[in-house]
Amino acid sequence: MTNEPMIDLQDATKKYDDGPPALAGVSLSVAAGECVAILGHSGSGKSTLLNLVAGLDKPSSGTVTVNGTRVDQLGEAGSAKYRRASIGMIFQFFNLLDDLTVLDNVMVPAQLAGMGRLEVKRRAIELLTSLGIDRHAKAYPQRLSGGQRQRVAVARALMNRPALLLADEPTGALDSRSAEDVRRLLLDLNDEGQTILLVTHDIQLAANTARRTIELVDGAVARDVVNTVSGATSNSSAGASR
């Protein structure tokens, strides 16, 4: 783990229409190699924060910097290229493309980046093998279990060797066994140095997976704690909300 900030939000605010802000002046930083959980109830602003970091949305004010890139200043094409190069995303409902095989699904990000087909295929098979689902390479996602689908989604997210992995409720649609399987996978990835931002409303998942938990309430950071042991937390010193 290094002290270099991977994610840096400064006074980030996001407003939709005339209602209260979805994010209200959030400032936080995440160091490279950290696994941070964003915890909060529905409507707390955690998905908005994830969208800002992923370049899927722009803040109404404030700055969002990821891996040295001012994400809030990128245009549509720039955001796409940024996601392609720096971000891997996994979702609650997997968001796999139903009409593509597992292998083809995993290959998509690299193909969009213009990598050669053989190289892409080699890398995809390597990932599927490492995640233990290579025997399903030619299957279609609908024939896999929830856990297997999420592993495919993880493989796809890692395809372009992203600096940051964003996980949006990655176990929300899984049974407990599959959820534990995915949780362990995320832990393993983090152990290997992968920076992970995990968005969830599941306190247990946050505590058992992330080294640090940031809780959002009404669009603002309510708590920023370091998870000392599994299921327990203590106040954070470095990288806390400012």
Binding site: A54, L56, E76, A77, A80, K81, R83, R84, A85, M89, N95, L96, L97, V108, P109, L112, A113, R156, N160
Partner: peptide
């Protein structure tokens, strides 16, 4: 999904 995976406009 495509755009989240980096498909440009």
């Amino acid at each position: 999904i495509f755009k989240a995976l980096g498909m440009t406009p």
